[in-house]
């Protein structure tokens, strides 16, 4: 973390937080086309199980490249999935932003996410540590990788009809 002073000087945490808040709003509104547009083509959206970081060779809750992300969104939007038509409503907050590094065009940002979902009047609460790898492009910040590590990810969860 010796570079942290440089990092702090070069990166505006408020700008990053605003980006992540915008994504949170997009996800709560299920505006998935807008969500897909926040990504670069090369990275992964990952909800891992346990503490492992070799995502490619471990079983994850999801491990989506660009193609899988598009398929996931299509599934949500087409109306044939009973769990997504309608999905649970969600309200989420994202906070506790910590800049974890910045090298080249990449910025690594950690934060906490709390999601409350409602379906059938039954509310559930989930919490996750989010780690973003963001890149600055000509059209603004984009997500290259996003890891949503849920509490109890290696225990019993419930079925999700939304994204973290």
């Amino acid at each position: 973390m010796s570079g942290i002073t440089t990092v702090d000087r070069d990166v505006d945490l408020q700008e990053l937080a605003a980006f992540v808040w915008r994504e949170a709003d997009i996800l709560d509104r299920c505006d998935y086309d807008a969500w897909l547009a926040l990504w670069t083509e090369d990275g992964h959206y990952i909800v891992p199980i346990g503490k492992g970081e070799n995502y490619e060779d471990q079983v994850n809750v999801c491990y989506d490249d660009a193609r899988m992300r598009r398929m996931r969104v299509e599934r949500f939007q087409q109306g044939f999935s009973i769990s997504s038509a309608p999905p649970a409503d969600t309200v989420r907050t994202v906070s506790r932003f910590v800049l974890q590094g910045a090298t080249g065009d990449e910025i690594v940002l950690g934060c906490a996410e709390h999601v409350v979902e409602n379906k059938f009047g039954r509310q559930r609460i989930y919490a996750a540590n989010l780690t973003y790898t963001l890149v600055r492009t000509e059209s603004g910040l984009r997500i290259r990788n996003k890891v949503a590590r849920l509490l109890n990810s290696d225990g019993e969860l419930t079925a999700f009809s939304y994204l973290f």
Partner: peptide, 9 residues
């Protein structure tokens, strides 16, 4: 699993 294309349904 919880976010598979089958299990949630």
């Amino acid at each position: 699993g919880p976010m598979g294309f089958g299990t949630p349904d």
